[in-house]
Simulated assay, not measured.
Amino acid sequence: MTEEIPLAFWQGVEEFNQQEFYTCHDTLEALWMEASEPEKKFYQGVLQIAVGLYHLSQKNWKGAVILMGEGLGRLNYYYPDYSGINVEQFIDETSQLLKALQNAGAENVETFLPLMQPQGTVQGLKLPKIQKVIGNGE
């Protein structure tokens, strides 16, 4: 049985997947501040990746790389899935983007801005999405 996740978390997921990263940050931060473990660390990991992607949208390479890396570090604990979320896929997509950003370097951060467009891709990458686990009887 999965843990009961508050509706506000699913609102944050929707905001994340709509690339409303700053709004997602606000939604998840309120949950994170009130949560206890293990949910607290999970919310924080997702929150940090959202903020990292917000930094990317603002051409802040350092902020994007640091926060995405910290978020990934927190989410590894919840691999492969947690509370109906496909953590494995989320980690994989975020890790690929982080690696590409690190390889490109700060001077090339603008080459990743097309990712912020609907269906945008760069070097075969898309922005990470938070997906539900498929096939668990829901």
Rank of each mutant, 00 (worst) to 15 (best):
T23S: 14
I130N: 01
N86S: 09
T2D: 04
V51S: 10
A50W: 11
Q19S: 15
Y77M: 03
L127I: 11
Q89S: 13
G12P: 12
Q18M: 07
A100G: 07
L98K: 14
V133H: 01
L75E: 00
T23F: 07
M1C: 07
L47I: 09
L113I: 15
P128H: 11
Q96F: 07
A100I: 11
A106N: 09
I134M: 04
I49V: 15
K41C: 06
F42S: 01
K132V: 02
E29N: 04
Q48P: 05
V13A: 05
E14Q: 15
Q102A: 05
W32I: 03
E20D: 13
P38V: 06
V13R: 10
Q44C: 06
M1T: 13
V122Y: 13
L125R: 15
C24E: 05
Q11Y: 08
E34P: 03
Q102L: 05
M116D: 03
Y43G: 03
L113N: 12
W32P: 05
Q11N: 13
A35K: 08
W61T: 03
L72T: 06
L97N: 11
T27W: 04
N86T: 01
K41P: 00
S57P: 08
S36H: 09
M68L: 13
Y78A: 02
Y79C: 00
I130D: 00
N108V: 04
A30G: 09
F21I: 09
L97Q: 08
G135S: 01
G52W: 13
A64V: 10
V65D: 01
K41H: 07
N86P: 02
Q18K: 14
Q11S: 11
